[in-house]
Design a protein around this nucleic acid. Structure first.
Lengths: 189, 189
DNA sequence: AAATGACTAGAAAACCATTTTGGTCATCTA
DNA sequence: TAGATGACCAAAATGGTTTTCTAGTCATTT
């Protein structure tokens, strides 16, 4: 495999496992089986490398979400399916959880920025979908940006915060059904 | 005025202005015009004093919310009025904002605990109201705890987080209208 | 021409001396 | 003499200094 790819995979692994701050360039180089200097022939610096990885994951998530959205299905059905799919990432991509945790703990500027970037990307993705169904007349006229924002923040609250104050975490099913039952429900005409 | 009250007011002022950590017992004593030792004749320690103050504010908020809820009004109307009332506290009680900021910045255990306590109190208050209207048949059968949780987290997201990534903060009106339009809307039968 | 790792500057961590502060209690005063 | 007080103390926080670590460079190697 080409070196660039090796580096990306090693870095992804390390960032996901240890977070941004605790990942050293030397460690990445070791995992990728390259010299440290090599990394810098492909990526300007640590931050750019990190951003590239995050961008890749966002892209992957968008693709996955898009994949489950069926043209002939209703907004309700598609919203449900997409949300379910996103929840699958809960386990696989510890990276986001790590980023959020790290932002709280160390306030690393790079991490803060990337977190905002992710948030922005997700919100605009959701907004776009809502707008589409608004134009199709399936969804009421609402402030789609606020709805998207609420969906993201609500999602994160249930996935990340809920456990902090409650015994058992919510299942994917519970979360999805709940959203279905409240927010999505309120949107359709 | 009695010393206990003086102390409570001084402490409230100081906690609100400087946060938990940056408020010293000596400072409170000075503002309250009492000796430091006197504080300890009324309150076991700094943490207990803090909790008492928070408890008072929560109680006050509950009372205010209860006051605007009219027996003969609909769920929609009451939810709207209560939410509006709560938003008034946004400016008046900087304390909660301080607590949240401090929790992020220093991770003081007492602060963390109090934050969870506030959250719990608010959620159970909202839940109780929803349950009431569910029993009255005005609100659909939903998981009222999840709804309450979403309302709180959504509220906090719009009031606190929104500004971090957006130019102009949302007005009370916008937030309330939005909730009215989505979540509350979805709850009524 | 591309890869490398020894090297460096600057950032972070560890350390430690000094100061601050929550909490106590012997003394004071009304 | 009951309640208030502030000097006092142990423990924690602060801040300044030294040491260690690491992102990024570049002369050398392959």
């Amino acid at each position: 495999m080409d070196r660039r790819q090796e580096i990306l995979e090693a870095a992804t692994k390390s960032f996901s496992l240890f977070g941004y701050k605790a990942t050293t360039m030397e460690q990445i180089a070791k995992i990728a089986n390259v010299g440290k200097g090599t990394i810098y022939t492909f990526f300007e610096n640590k931050e750019v490398l990190f951003q590239e990885i995050v961008l890749r994951i966002i892209t992957e998530m968008k693709q996955e979400a898009t994949k489950v959205i069926k043209e002939d299905a209703s907004f309700q059905e598609n919203a449900y399916a997409a949300l379910m799919k996103m929840l699958e990432f809960r386990d696989t991509h510890q990276l986001f959880a790590k980023i959020i945790a790290e932002e709280q703990e160390w306030r690393t500027p790079a991490v803060k920025q990337v977190k905002a970037q992710i948030e922005q990307a997700i919100v605009s993705f959701i907004k776009q979908k809502i707008d589409k169904y608004m134009n199709l007349g399936e969804v009421r006229q609402v402030n789609s940006e606020l709805v998207a924002y609420l969906l993201l923040k609500g999602y994160l609250a249930f996935v990340n915060d809920w456990n902090l104050t409650h015994e058992k975490p919510l299942t994917e099913q519970e979360i999805t059904d709940f959203f279905q039952d409240t927010i999505f429900q309120s949107l359709i005409i």
